Structure formats: C-alpha cells, structure tokens
Amino acid sequence: MPINESNPEAMDWLAAELADTLDEDYELEISEPALSDEIRRIYKRKHPDALDRATYFRSLLELQAELIKLHNWVEHTGEKVVVIFEGRDSAGKGGVIKRITQRLNPRVVRVVALQKPTEQEKTQWYFQRYVPHLPSGGEIVLFDRSWYNRSGVERVMGFASAEQVEQFFQDVPEFERMLVRSGIRLIKYWFSITDEEQQLRFLMRIHDPLKQWKLSPMDLQSRVRWEDYTKAKEETFARTNIPEAPWFVVEGNDKKRARLNCIRHLLGQIPYEEVPHEQISLPDRVFNPDYDREPLPEQLFVPNHY
C-alpha cells in the first residue's frame, strides 16, 4: 500500500496509526514522574535538533510498512535472516529491536537475548549455545547481543582467557562464512555512542524507577572500563569485518535518527519485494436459532474499575 497523497485510504491509515503511536509515546513520557527534571533539561539541551514527534513517527510508520513487506517476503520465499545488534550499554540496541518487531509476527521474527552461559554451556564449543537459535526457512532472528560477547564483555571483564579470546578471533570468521554458505543472510550492526551520551543515559536510568532494571553491575563497570571496551571493539572490527559479513556502524547519540537509519539500512540489505496474497474477505457469521448461550458466573469477570 503506497503511502502518498494520491492514496487517500493509505493516508487515513497513516493518520490513525500516527495518532495511536503518539498516544503511546505520551504515555511513556508521563510514566516517568521520578525522572530528575534537571537531567531531563540537560538531555534536551544536548539534543537541540532532535526530530519532532510527527516527523519521526511518520517516518517510522512508513519504514514499518516496508518491514511488513520484508517479513512477508521472507516467509513466502523461505529465506533465512540473522541480524546482530552489538554496541555499548545504553547505545539503543533494544530500542531499534522493539521498533523492528513492533508490527511483525513473532512466529516469523524472533528476538534472542541469551543470559550468561550456564556451567554446562561453559564446557561446550563456544558457538554451540547460539546454534539452536539460528533461523529455519522463513524466519528472521534478531540477536540482542551475540557470540561477540566473547570479544567484548567476556574479554574486558576477565570471563574469558586471552587464549579463549584468540581462539574466538580465529574461529568466528569461518563460523560466519559457514552460516552464509548455508543460505543465511547475516547482517551485523554496531551501535556507537559517545562517553558523554552514555553517562547521560545511565543517569536517566538511575533516576527513573521504571528503567532501573536496565542497569546491571556489569553496565556500571562499563563506565569504569570505557577505554578497555574501546580497544576490544577496535580489535573486533579489525579481525571480524569480513566481506561475507561486514560490520555496519550506527551513530546512536540521537535515538530517533539511529532507529530510522538502522531500519532503512536493513531494508536496503535484502532484495525483498511484495509477494502475492489472496484477497481476504470476512465470512458471514452462522446463527443457530436453537442455541442459547449460558451466562458465565460473575466471579470470572475482571472488575470494571475504569
């Protein structure tokens, strides 16, 4: 459904979706009563050229309409897609993943965000715990962090030895080439933010009780070890940026622009097209004059408080 002024039906849909999405955004904003006013003012001062809501949501909805076409094409053709999202803590990985999956079928598009390895998994081949999550035909898998934990947090925090990290760097290019040879489209994004921007976002999380769950002791350590993470990132890029699966860096200081730029780029990496589908029509309801519905007990109903 092309969205332009010559298509009134599409414009009406866009207007309705825009209003609904704006309502959700306002709801999120007013649900942060404990957020420091001073931090909010600082954050807004640091982002004076932020996109206005209407422009952002209009662009997002248009991109999400294209994501639906991509989703349908992957399901129709049996393609297999893996998208990796890496980057510093609070860089915006979760935000873009949420916007990608927001209007898609979770049976087709899956998010994988693994916990730290169990004692059993620590004894396995390093890539073994990731393999079961790879896509079957007709699936898109989004990794919110991935096997690159080994060259990032595990390396910096000392959870992996120097020998294990070196073995990872030797293995991962061939592992990814194997995935590509098997027919998987592998796309890797690194979300990049500045030291100052991460500090602001961490402060906003600390002062917002609804977001404090996003901060772990490991996240706080990432502030202390900023330079160590930088060195780890640089070596990761140098040794794993292969032609079959290159890295793409998303500038993440502006959250809204980062989301739009990443989604637009992702759409450009896959040669999807609209697929044929049967016209859907609502069938008539069948009425049985001899059927009387039994009333349900009152205690089964959720009370109407609103």
Rank of each mutant, 00 (worst) to 15 (best):
N288T: 12
D52Y: 07
V224E: 15
L220H: 14
Q128H: 08
E32N: 14
V112L: 04
D12Q: 15
L35P: 05
N105D: 15
S59A: 11
G158I: 09
L70H: 07
E24D: 13
E154I: 09
R285G: 11
R257C: 01
T101C: 14
A16W: 02
N304I: 10
T230F: 05
R225K: 15
I193R: 00
R41Y: 09
L104H: 01
E298Y: 05
R259E: 03
V286W: 03
M218R: 11
E244W: 02
Q115C: 02
K44M: 08
G78H: 12
P209C: 00
I184Y: 09
P303I: 04
R88I: 07
Q64R: 13
E79W: 07
N261M: 06
G137D: 13
D20S: 15
D284C: 05
E38K: 14
Y126M: 03
D12Y: 12
Q64V: 05
I97A: 00
A113I: 08
V131E: 08
V249S: 10
Q120C: 00
S59Q: 15
A65I: 00
P276K: 08
T21K: 14
E75W: 12
L215T: 15
D254N: 10
S136E: 15
L22E: 12
W213D: 06
F85C: 04
Q64G: 03
V224P: 11
E119K: 00
S192R: 07
P289A: 03
